[in-house]
Write a protein that binds this DNA or RNA. Sequence first.
DNA 1: CTGAAAGCGCTAACAC
DNA 2: GTGTTAGCGCTTTCAG
Lengths: 341, 341
Amino acid sequence: MLAGKARMLDVARLAGVGTMTVSRVLNNSAPVSPQTRERVQQAIKKLNYRPNPFARSLRQARSNSIGIIVPNFYDPFFATCAHAISLVAKQRDYTVTVATSDEDAQFEFTEATLMVLNRVAGLAVIPAAMGKNQLHRPEFRTTRIVMLDRPIEGQRFSSVLVENRSGSHAAVKHLLDHGHKVIQFLGLSEKLYTLNERYRGYASAMCEAGLTPSEHFTCRTMEETCILIRKAISGRQPPTAFFLGNNLVTRNALHAFSQLKIKISDDVAIIGFDDFDMADIFVPAITVVRHPAQELGRVAAELLFEQLARKKVARSKEQVVLPVELVIRQSCGCNVETRMP
Amino acid sequence: MLAGKARMLDVARLAGVGTMTVSRVLNNSAPVSPQTRERVQQAIKKLNYRPNPFARSLRQARSNSIGIIVPNFYDPFFATCAHAISLVAKQRDYTVTVATSDEDAQFEFTEATLMVLNRVAGLAVIPAAMGKNQLHRPEFRTTRIVMLDRPIEGQRFSSVLVENRSGSHAAVKHLLDHGHKVIQFLGLSEKLYTLNERYRGYASAMCEAGLTPSEHFTCRTMEETCILIRKAISGRQPPTAFFLGNNLVTRNALHAFSQLKIKISDDVAIIGFDDFDMADIFVPAITVVRHPAQELGRVAAELLFEQLARKKVARSKEQVVLPVELVIRQSCGCNVETRMP
DNA sequence: CTGAAAGCGCTAACAC
DNA sequence: GTGTTAGCGCTTTCAG
């Protein structure tokens, strides 16, 4: 028998009960006697019955589906988060609809609106960096939303973040322990919450060591980064180490160093925030602060489902902050022996 | 006025028409006089009316949503394809639900079934490599499905592929032009369609040059790859160049070369299939055959929507094959000058 | 514990 | 061109 053809009425007839009893067995929404339940389940199996999700959603005015909005899918970090969220959703028999904001709060708003019109049960969002966030608008008042990676200021939304500051602090401390005195922070944009936090972690470590922080926040392209680094290197107090704010900055910086014939860990030491696929293969292997991307998605999804289980939209916002890990390889100056098979 | 509160009846009353007229204006499903249409549109706007997607789907027995199934999201190639598909879907006012198969045909089947039960209008799939494909089963007879990147043998499904053979042929030809005589092919698995095709392209180029192909198809881990390469290098006819079947193999091989202290382009030349994020930053920069991942997703999505527009499920299968591009950098032995900003 | 009736919001089919 | 009727398949409500 083909799935999706039988209706609830067919099941009810075969089991010799009313449709409501079938519905109750399916949803555990009211007690059903064990014998009746058994008969109904037999009938369901026999007919290969599956409830029609639209009829159900139409009646209940909400679907068994959650929405995910991330800036893009190119950044493996975002892709990994999205994947982790969808794993949890699958586990709970929810489907997932996805959309990307391209870091634009306006697009994010459009996508979120569309999802709400499609009656998603809730939303998991990595908020767009550009523009004014719109998710606090009244039309989302009744929508459960959880933020990942970046919080939204002064709002009701729960969020799951990572230890940006302490992670950066530890990384910079490691560079200081290697004897570096002039360490520069390279960021992507002042608009990004994570970059700002990481800068603070960096700055506090520098200050504690009695050193002056120095930063460039605009490593958006390889060209820009190259120019910035060249200028820094040829200055009066050339940095002997760099702390790179995220994987995009790391990418740009690596390119710049190669262009400028600067040898990493001979000429300068570096540590990046956010691990990436080739970090351990690079020569020298790049020391990084590792983001628990998978965990971030998982926890956010669980938080969302927790909220869905509650009757009312929560007024209080929860914040979960996940630990990060300093993965020491070679670019920091450590001489870690690499394994030979 | 909050969206999603007004019903079609409210609009009809305000406009002084029947609900069917509203429906017709909304769907362009039948002619409506300009004046009436105008009145209806005014009412829609005034009430901020949005049709209820569930009621619509319930009635039409299908949703305005397509499903995407890819092996995983970690591989940027898959993520990019998925993104490109969802862009097209958005353009056509379709929502997208996603799922991953983990390269397992059984999981793929489960996810596809779930999506069909959720009445997706169609499916875009990068078929799982492991296990016997299940998408030809009768329960999918009425489902529009388009395959990307990998076809399914002898089935009714349209697919969008890339020029695996000729791309590989060109890459190997390039290595031959550099004077290499012993070139080895490194693959990931014989189970992967793409790897097999690329091997054929490699082999034909070798044969045409009067040389013997030589391959290893099991570069699944860095350790395995390392052992294979070491053995090859220390053999009687050590390869002076390698052609790497996909980005995972390239990754493993790069790791192995670094472990074995083999200098790329000094000791051996390499070309990889599939561009990757750090390829141009590596020292030396890696020459690759570039996959048009974005294009692949776009074309597949358009093919799918074309099929959706047709009344009946197409019996004939179409195949689109997209060109690839040899991106010459340095690992092949070319001395391409890198730009300085 | 169980069932019958009503109706969620929309559109196909048929009037006019 | 337009309106009326019926019903998609389910669950809420209320009555037993």
